[in-house]
Design a binder for these strands. Structure first.
Length: 484
RNA sequence: CGGGGUGUGGCGCAGCUUGGUUAGCGCGCUUGCUUUGGGAGCAAGAGGUCGGAGGUUCAAAUCCUCUCACCCCGACCA
């Protein structure tokens, strides 16, 4: 918030413009909209009821899709013995810098340190090795919703916190093909979910060797472009191959009685998605939450005078009752705030649709609908309200997606030379499509020179083939970007 | 982890350079009355050991040392 302006106008609780200072806008809007708050512990935020309701909606809708595809929820412990974590070499190495340790129980020093889970592969694999004996035990399709802890240098609410909430799926299969199919299936589920429910367009594809999950055979990713032109990983799905099976000795007897290692996957999304929603859809007035996950989809603001209060209140309560079964709807009947104040408040908090009702509307048997994304206002007859609200919410949902997609398209550049590559990164950022030969040394070189990394090797490229932007050798077209 | 910045009632800040009475201001909050179609008005109130610890001094929000947190810009990660 600019100091001079606030002093002049005598307004303080006014949000900074999104375009003026994105970082500041981001933290202010989170605080002002009561999504989350800071705590005395670095990197550990409180997710407040309004923010948590978004998470609950995300969880509910995704959980349903997991169940539809045969997965069951379970819960594994928070603490993991050090020796478990150490079993898969690449895995430990990958996570070592960000693991927090429990060293004491009360006053007793522990014989073996316990890691606070940064992810649960190791403890889950340990259990799988006990549970899996026969091909008849397969596949194992388990998911858990939990918290994990990663000791981060730099933290930001939702986008990178020390503790965060997520979901991690862990599956074991008899064949390589089945595991690969599972990893891809979950990638598609995430993709549909993020695009349809969160209205965020994503590019799906594989990670390079350098960027893949520590211990995985292959990592698939969903990459979204944020409004500052940087890429955010919105979810991942790993084909773990037999790496963990070998480290944890997870074997089964096949139909011919032969002992074989299982093939595994793991996949996850986190509360980071809420950060992606905030950055993708918000504007100068505050949040815009896609209707499908909005805690409040519709807010009714009554407009009354002393003489008309009872009348308007009755109409409001009637409307509320009428729409409550179908929508997540609330009415703000507080008398101590003016309608104008409430308009701003609910816009800031990202409620997709507002219904205004006052004496003039009651006379005409109508209400005023105002949508958050376009601010378009229109009077609607009460008899058509239910249908209209549903249509507008749906329209907002698709409009948000279209807008975000348009932004992504405008900020995706195909480049041929490193100079052009650098120039675009320096000025406008965004996704850069360029050829890459597949060698890590070229990847590293590009990264050192330009700060961009390979975000994604697309599964469905528009065109195949391209010469490596670094060495010129024949390769594939991949997405580069500066990462969050 | 490097470079820069900020910590003063709930929020945003002033005061600090040049130590000196009861630490101010705006918003918010409480109570009352009047208001209410885009952030209402008046009146009366409540709320602060100045991020923390040490030091200098007759005297510290102010000077010094250390520390913690947060923000911004970079290197690593969902």
């Amino acid at each position: 918030m600019s100091k001079d302006k606030s002093v002049e106008e005598g307004i303080v609780e006014k949000l900074i413009n999104k375009s003026e200072n994105l970082s500041r806008w981001y933290s202010e809007v989170i605080r002002m909209a009561k999504l989350a708050d800071y705590t005395p512990v670095k990197g550990c935020m409180v997710i407040r009821p309004y923010g948590y309701a978004i998470w609950e909606n995300i969880r509910e809708r995704l959980d349903e899709k997991f169940k539809e595809t045969g997965h069951a929820n379970a819960y594994f412990p928070l603490l993991i013995p050090e020796s478990f974590l150490a079993k898969e070499a690449e895995h430990v190495q990958g996570f070592a810098p960000e693991v927090a340790w429990v060293t004491h129980g009360g006053k007793e020093k522990l014989e073996e340190r316990l890691a606070i889970r940064p992810t649960s592969e190791s403890i889950i694999c340990h259990m799988y090795s006990k549970w899996i004996r026969s091909h008849r035990d397969l596949p194992v399709l388990i998911n858990q919703w939990c918290n994990v802890l990663r000791w981060e240098m730099v933290t930001r609410p939702f986008l990178r916190t020390t503790e965060f909430l997520w979901q991690e799926g862990h599956t074991a299969h008899a064949t390589k093909e089945e595991a690969e199919e599972e990893a891809l299936q979950m990638l598609r589920i995430y993709c549909d979910f993020i695009q349809d429910e969160l209205a965020i367009p994503v590019i799906i594809g594989g990670k390079s060797e350098r960027e893949k999950f520590a211990g995985a055979l292959r990592t698939y990713t969903l990459e979204a472009l944020m409004c500052d032109g940087r890429a955010l990983q919105a979810g991942t799905s790993h084909n773990l191959g037999q790496n963990f099976a070998k480290a944890f000795d997870i074997t089964f007897q096949d139909e011919r009685g032969e002992r074989r290692y299982v093939w595994q996957t793991s996949w996850g999304i986190s509360t980071r998605l809420i950060g992606a929603v905030i950055l993708t859809h918000g504007d100068d007035a505050g949040l815009i939450i896609p209707p499908n996950i909005a805690p409040i989809q519709v807010i009714i603001i009554p407009i009354w005078q002393t003489k008309t209060r009872t009348l308007v209140r009755e109409r409001t309560e009637h409307l509320l009752k009428l729409l409550k079964k179908k929508f997540r709807i609330e009415a703000d009947l507080r008398e101590e705030y003016t309608p104008g104040w409430k308009f701003n408040e609910y816009e800031m908090r990202g409620v997709p649709l507002r219904i205004e009702i006052g004496p003039k509307d009651i006379e005409k048997e109508q209400v005023i609908l105002v949508r958050r994304d376009t601010r378009e206002e229109k009077p609607i007859k009460e008899s058509e309200l239910k249908v209209e609200v549903e249509q507008i919410l749906q329209n907002i949902q698709t409009n948000l997606f279209k807008k975000a997609k348009k932004f992504r398209e405008e900020n995706t550049h195909e480049v041929r030379g490193l100079d052009e590559f650098e120039e675009i990164l320096r000025t406008k950022r965004g996704f850069l499509i360029a050829g890459w030969c597949g060698k890590t040394e070229c990847e590293n070189h590009i990264r050192e020179k330009t700060v961009a990394t390979i975000r994604c090797i697309p599964l469905a490229p528009e065109r195949r083939g391209g010469n490596c932007i670094n060495c010129g050798e024949r390769g594939e077209l991949v997405y580069f970007a500066q990462a969050y």
